[in-house]
Simulated assay, not measured.
Amino acid sequence: MKLLEYQGKELFAEYGIPIPSASLAYSKDEALKDSTKFEFPVVLKSQLTVGGRGKAGAIIKCSNSSDLGLAFDVLSKKEVKGELPRGILIEEVVDKKSEIYLSIFLNRSRRCYSLIASAEGGVDIESVTNKVIFDIPLGGLLREQAQEAAAKLGLQDVSFEAFVDFAMRISTLVKEKEIELAEVNPIAILKDGSLIALDSKIIVDDNAMFRHPELRKYEHVSEIERQAGKSGFSLVELYGDIAIIGNGAGLVMSTVDMVTDRGGRAGCFLDFGGGATTQTIYEALKVISKIQQIRAILVNLFGGIVRTNLVAQAILDAYKNNLVNVPVYARITGAESEKAKAMLVGSKAKLYDTVEEAIEQVVRQVA
């Protein structure tokens, strides 16, 4: 679960991590009223789960209330990677001396947490060559490690101790809330040497949510996802234009990864599970038809419990009833797969022997 910036900063505040004064607004009138709490200039920041807000123009500095009103109108309608903001954060402008970067993340390949820090903040960390990287013990970041990182960043005196404290608090947050990623980009170093988090990027481990009911308030379920749940299947809206359907979360997730590797963008993840019927699959297609940006549907189906001819019939019914107008690219194998393939011959659905072939064609179609 990806938290919005203001949500991540609420957790920061809970752990004593310094953040700027801010207020969340959902309307222009609310924003203008809340702005009276601050001295101008202020900065307006779209609350999105996707990255790249700054480059996309979704962060605007405002010098007065007139600027603020105009900026709010722009940001409230501005999409970034297909996502509209879920509120606009009004935040005080911090008089900073410099910026640094810090993140602690679950390093799955090494089966531990790792820390990355850089003396360059506010930039894509991938483009930075001078980084401090090391693994963290399962018990959490050691103070000696935080001190080593501060020294390698060239921090001294107040900033040195402030960074050590900042990093230790981030580590405690990660451990106690079972966070997969806690990134602060940038951290501002103020003129007095103290540190303050200007941004937050928090990803919570979904598998640990049952242990953290206090984080449920941050869950965001769209109306389409809610409808999917009522119909008995799992759907997650994404921001691309290819709907990906399969039976089994692992199969669908791996298909999403394969599509991404080929340059495609998944528009939704839909798992109809192992007990699907023609009706439930039809309902799944009905839900997908309501996602406006979808330009093609990719079906990756391995028929074990699910009879694949039921899937084929649902696709035919969806086309017949004009429920689906976009092309379907399908790899269907398993129980009754030959029958399913025969049923779909001559339809708008395109069948492939391997998922790799289907992905290549669907990505080419929407390019």
Rank of each mutant, 00 (worst) to 15 (best):
N321G: 01
H220E: 15
R111V: 04
V366H: 05
S65N: 11
L190V: 02
D261C: 09
S194T: 15
V252H: 03
D271G: 10
Q365K: 14
T129L: 04
I315C: 10
L141Q: 04
A13T: 13
A284G: 15
S289H: 07
K37T: 04
F72D: 04
V128H: 07
S289I: 08
E223C: 00
T255Y: 02
N309C: 05
E357H: 07
L153D: 02
K96G: 03
D257P: 10
N207F: 04
I294C: 05
V123A: 12
E148N: 13
E360K: 14
S234F: 11
Y218V: 05
T129W: 00
G139C: 08
K217C: 03
F272R: 00
E214N: 11
G82V: 13
V326D: 11
V74E: 14
K78H: 14
I297R: 04
E14P: 00
A312C: 08
I60G: 05
T255W: 03
R110L: 14
Y329P: 04
K77T: 09
V355S: 13
Q293P: 00
A56L: 06
Q156Y: 06
K77E: 14
V164R: 00
L155A: 04
V256R: 01
A358S: 12
A276F: 07
G52H: 08
I203A: 11
V128R: 10
L251W: 04
R111E: 14
E92S: 15
Q361M: 08
N64H: 09
S234P: 00
E91T: 12
T36M: 08
F12L: 13
D271L: 12
G346K: 09
G16M: 07
A249I: 10
E144S: 15
N322I: 01
G16R: 06
A117M: 02
V362N: 02
R262K: 15
E91V: 13
I291G: 06
I88K: 02
D165E: 12
E237F: 06
V287R: 02
L89C: 07
A318D: 11
I202D: 08
I88E: 01
E120H: 01
G57W: 02
V366C: 10
V50F: 02
T172Y: 01
S231Y: 10
D261T: 08
L190R: 15
L235K: 05
I189G: 01
L4E: 11
D135C: 03
I19S: 04
E338Q: 15
D241V: 08
L344A: 08
K320F: 03
G52V: 06
A340D: 11
L141T: 04
E144Q: 13
D34G: 00
L181H: 08
I224R: 05
Q147F: 03
G334T: 04
M253N: 07
A151Q: 12
G346M: 11
I116E: 00
R295K: 15
I203L: 13
F302N: 02
G303W: 09
A276Q: 06
I332P: 01
V252N: 03
K320T: 12
A58P: 05
N247P: 07
Y352K: 08
L323Y: 01
I104D: 03
D29W: 00
L44H: 09
L106R: 12
G229L: 04
V299P: 01
L4H: 15
K286G: 13
A58Q: 05
G274P: 08
V128S: 11
A182P: 06
E99D: 14
L138C: 01
Q7I: 09
